[in-house]
Design a protein around this nucleic acid. Structure first.
Length: 607
DNA sequence: CAGGGCATCT
DNA sequence: AGATGCC
């Protein structure tokens, strides 16, 4: 028997050994864009309001919905059903982003992992918080807040009913705080996994919340008609499933995993079947800074190189602003384009990427800048990548170009970490030029960079809220690093702060973290980027490697030996095991069957 | 249709 | 690198 049952598993009727131990809340802001506009201009509250992008209504307030103004409706059609519809242009997403980040910050004050999904949705894993509450109050007689999908028919021996009721109280507090602080009404779904939390969330709309108990997971899922309504089943999978006559969630529940394995990877087959039954063990991953920052521009057609260059130049200018706001130093750049192709209507993008020298980016007065020469260097890299993608001896026709920075230098900020130690000597920091991905474990309760007290005072007139600086990645050491010039190594102490790969905001953060006495576990572990170690980038060639037995080439031996013994030891240990032992990926699929030949535009389930 | 921007998996 | 998915 599975020993999960000893702890938190339940075994009752057709739910033999599922794990109910987690408590997940999904929070969804009601008609998000419309609410942002209504908060900005309260007069809009009492009138039917539509948010317009191009020629469509992307969302509407509930006043407008009374008239039948729906999402994704053409503006002309909307006026037909609601002649006095008030329109607000929503093409500039800046205000929405700001508001979205504020909600995210509010949710973080509960000190649980928060995962942002788009602008208006968040998952919160409150499992630990619930456990703590249970310990201190020991009261299993808790009232449910909000609605339930269905009352439970029996007690679950694992205690999940109590935990979910406590979760519903927490969800209610969260929604209240979002409303009190930011004036947004929200919906919430409470369940023992992300799938059910998300799907049950809109069950009582708007401005309400719904809890679903594990025993109703499977039956609830079967009320969803189309397999498409399961998150992670997109158009492609839907098409494949339908070609096999698997159309409803019920169909999927009844099909055997073996049949699914004929069309999907083994992992996916198992996962799909699980999802159809309301099972989902994917963790809530703390959202941090993005792993890439990019922009793209689509257009009818571009066939001239100089035009392409202009497009990229414009994109680069905009992108550099975003990167400056982000604060991290990019080390890799990707160029994407889409060729005009009659066969493939859309998508089919191609891309090439290469490293960029971090020295292009200069930190002065705490903000990232790139000199004219630096920008020219970037343009050179971009056009070189472009040449890899396009044979200029032949005509070309593009419909999209894109630019993205995809890897960043990061600094480890854990208390007691090497970097933290090094912060005491800024010159040493610059010499080592540490490049790693920072962070704490996703299940850790440590989000000290965002304090709850500061978040209670947010209001919409504030400047843009910076999202959590945390990344749900553990410490990773990357082999390729910037080499140092002789001058830099020779007199590290002469370096000006402005030249350091560290801005003032981050220094501030580091000192905050130092003050925070809570311990962090910064256990190194498998690097997801380990494959990139073999990257050989053309433009890094100038970096001649100096060999050193104990330490990597990017660290000057002299500087290294000048460090305290303890630190040398710590560094050596990490160099020995740069990325931990890679977790081998589960074996690739043996049976990947050809795609179905059915051409399915949309699947519209019958009621 | 509307598509931009990000993550994840292979 | 590319495909797929999500909002």
């Amino acid at each position: 028997m599975d020993d999960r049952n000893m702890e938190s598993g339940c075994s009752h009727y057709n739910d033999v050994e599922s794990d109910h131990s987690k408590c997940i809340i999904h929070v969804d802001i009601d008609c998000f864009y419309a609410q942002v506009e209504m908060v900005r201009n309260p007069e809009l509250r009492s009138v039917p309001l539509g948010i317009q992008q191009k020629n469509i209504i992307v969302t509407s307030n509930y006043e407008a919905r009374k008239y039948g103004v729906q999402k994704c409706m053409l503006v002309t059609d909307a006026f037909k059903v609601c002649p006095n519809l008030k329109l607000v242009n929503g093409e500039d997403l800046h205000n929405y982003r700001t508001a979205s980040n504020k909600v995210f910050v509010v949710l973080q004050s509960w000190k649980c992992p928060v995962e942002k999904l788009g602008m208006d949705e968040n998952f919160i894993d409150v499992t630990n918080l619930v456990q703590e509450k249970l310990k201190t109050t020991n009261n299993t007689n808790v009232n449910l807040a909000g609605q339930t999908y269905k009352e439970p028919s029996m007690d679950c021996p694992c205690g999940c009913h109590t935990r979910l009721r406590i979760s519903s109280q927490i969800a209610s507090e969260m929604r209240k705080k979002i409303y009190d602080d930011l004036s947004f009404t929200t919906c919430a779904g409470i369940a023992h996994n992300k799938l059910l939390a998300k799907l049950i969330c809109p069950y009582n709309k708007p401005n309400n919340q719904t809890t679903i108990y594990p025993e109703h997971g499977t039956s609830f899922m079967s009320t969803l008609q189309s397999v498409r309504s399961i998150p992670s089943i997109g158009p492609k999978m839907t098409e494949t499933l339908i070609s096999q006559n698997i159309i409803t969630v019920s169909d999927l529940q009844e099909v055997s995993v073996d049949v699914l394995k004929k069309h999907f990877s083994s992992d996916m087959a198992v996962r799909l079947k699980g999802l159809s039954l309301g099972e989902d063990n994917t963790p809530v991953k703390q959202t941090g800074k993005p792993q890439s920052i990019g922009l793209e521009d689509s257009f009818k057609i571009v066939s001239v190189k100089s035009e392409v260059e202009d497009k990229f130049s414009a994109l680069l200018q905009r992108l550099l602003v975003l990167v400056r706001e982000d604060g991290r130093i990019p080390v890799s750049l990707r160029v994407t384009l889409r060729k005009k192709d009659a066969k493939r209507l859309s998508s089919h993008r191609e891309s090439r990427q290469s490293q960029v020298s971090p020295s292009i980016f200069i930190l002065s007065n705490g903000s990232l800048t790139v000199t004219e020469a630096g920008q020219q260097k970037l343009m050179n890299i971009i056009m070189r990548l472009f040449n890899k993608l396009i044979d200029l001896s032949k005509p070309f026709h593009l419909t999209l170009v894109g630019l993205a920075f995809t890897k960043f230098q990061e600094r480890m900020t854990g208390r007691g970490s090497i970097v933290n130690y090094l912060m005491n000597d800024i010159s040493v920091q610059s010499v080592l030029n540490l490049q790693n991905e920072c962070d704490t474990s996703a299940t850790s309760m440590d989000y000290s960079a965002v304090s709850p007290s500061s978040s209670t005072t947010t209001d919409l007139s504030d400047a843009e809220v910076e999202p959590s600086p945390k990344k749900p990645k553990k410490v990773t050491w990357i082999a390729k690093r910037r080499c140092l010039s002789k001058e830099e190594v020779a007199s590290p102490s002469k370096l000006k702060v402005g030249e350091l790969r560290l801005n003032s905001k981050e220094l501030e953060k580091v000192s905050e973290l130092r003050l925070n006495s809570r311990d962090r576990s910064l256990t190194p572990r498998a690097s997801p980027a380990k494959d990139n170690m073999s990257d050989t980038s053309d433009n890094m060639k100038e970096c001649e490697e100096r060999n050193c037995d104990d330490c990597p080439s990017y660290v000057d031996k002299e500087v290294f030996s000048a460090l305290p013994d303890e630190m040398q030891k710590e560094l050596k240990a990490m160099w020995k095991n740069p990325s931990g032992s890679g977790v081998p990926r589960s074996s690739p699929r043996t049976t990947n069957k050809p795609k179905p030949n059915t051409i399915m535009k949309y699947f519209v389930p019958h009621k």
